[in-house]
Design a protein around this nucleic acid. Structure first.
Lengths: 230, 230
DNA sequence: TAGTGGTCTAGACCACTCA
DNA sequence: GAGTGGTCTAGACCACTAT
């Protein structure tokens, strides 16, 4: 073979795994050997192998060599949903309405999550996200004022709370919990559903460098689906 | 600075983004310039920049240079859930019970998904996944017999259908849809819940090289949560 | 301790795309 | 056409870990 890109090599190796030429859990040749076989530099082989390891297909160990993963679990990458983009992706017009925006002391469960004391005040905001002026999702959010004190001056008419935060604290970390609940009356009312309807819930908490920023729950309208590919 | 690993460089650059030194949507220095600044080879800088671009923090274009992403959307990677591992991760003992296992003609919606004709038979399997002998999830699965004909001989006493497929067709592609529904009577019965309870649903279809393998729906017991981090 | 992957370098050429 | 990122190479040294 002549001139191989790391991509071509990777695909070739992926096929060797898929066809079983390289058995599940089995050891595969070392980098130098593969470099000779493919007729390219070891660096190129290394890059291809690392990509496959990153995808969860290979497990690599110094001295131990490279093995095909014996319990192949595919991983999927997905973007943390931004409601406005979800709405616009459907071809609908996005708008939002702020129902509540107050500074108040949060319940203990929230205070714990934001790592603030029970007596500290936090910003509580309720928002309804609309798609073509029909309810799409209801958002209930608490914000740690110590983390982003200047948020109180921000007007949320044109820009949503979420997008303000994204711009203000651009690359935070966080966790996400997906679940399903039966809508209580309040939620049902906000998303124009009947009480008791199954609702898809996204519970998200974000932080930046040991400091908690915000925690929110998103209740999507009935029938909502979250799609991913792997 | 002396001897920088690509990791150190990456972290340094990540901070410059987070602190706003490199503004959202702004152009950052070119690779050669950064290489001089950090005192390392361009290859090393390239690697760090590619990692950040991969994480969605940077957007790179030939000739156009590298810019900080102006609408930062964090991405999360998560493993396609394998029920047995979910159960064992909770410290419970996993078992499963096969309720139905028949060869039959699928409804049109399923036939379409598996890309087979309406008259073709497919394998239909219903399974209840148990955690410490209590229902954890109910699985309703269709399998394309043309894709994996030898599955009919497989005994699903020790190993679940899913794990048999994973080993047989180890690195398939697929899509996943998360949603919430109200349990009908049958589902409610299988997961020991009341009819109408909100249930978390995972709908998954997998294929390998243009051929559809299987499509399934997983109905989790009430209170189930799917956790991810970003 | 020896063997494997992990990383870095300096230099080169290519491919894309903006002006 | 010129400038940027994308990729490859050959060689070197380091770090981990299985034996």
């Amino acid at each position: 073979m002549t001139k191989q890109s790391h991509n071509t090599v990777r695909q070739s190796m992926q096929e060797r795994i898929e066809t079983g030429e390289w058995a599940l859990g089995g050891l595969i040749p070392g980098e130098i050997e593969l470099a000779e076989e493919y007729g390219c530099a070891r660096t190129t082989i290394n890059r291809a192998l690392q990509a496959l390891a990153d995808a969860g297909m290979l497990v690599r160990k110094r001295k131990g060599g490279t093995r095909v993963c014996n319990m192949p679990v595919r991983q999927a990458k997905f973007s943390i949903p931004v409601v406005r983009e979800q709405v616009e992706a459907m071809g609908s017009q996005y708008r939002h309405r702020v129902l509540v925006n107050t500074k108040t002391t949060p319940p203990t469960s929230i205070a714990t999550r934001l790592n603030i004391s029970d007596s500290d005040k936090a910003l509580y905001i309720e928002t309804v996200h609309l798609a073509d002026d029909r309810p799409f999702a209801f958002e209930s959010r608490w914000i740690n004022l110590k983390a982003v004190p200047n948020i109180v001056d921000a007007p949320f008419k044109d820009i949503s709370v979420n997008e303000w935060l994204i711009r203000s604290v651009p690359f935070s970390n966080g966790d996400v919990i997906f679940s399903a609940i039966n809508a209580d009356e309040k939620i049902a009312d906000c998303i124009e559903a009947e009480s008791g309807t199954a609702v898809f819930v996204v519970d998200r908490t974000t932080w930046y460098k040991e400091e908690y920023i915000t925690t929110l729950k998103l209740y999507y309208k009935p029938g909502f689906q979250l799609y991913t590919r792997f």
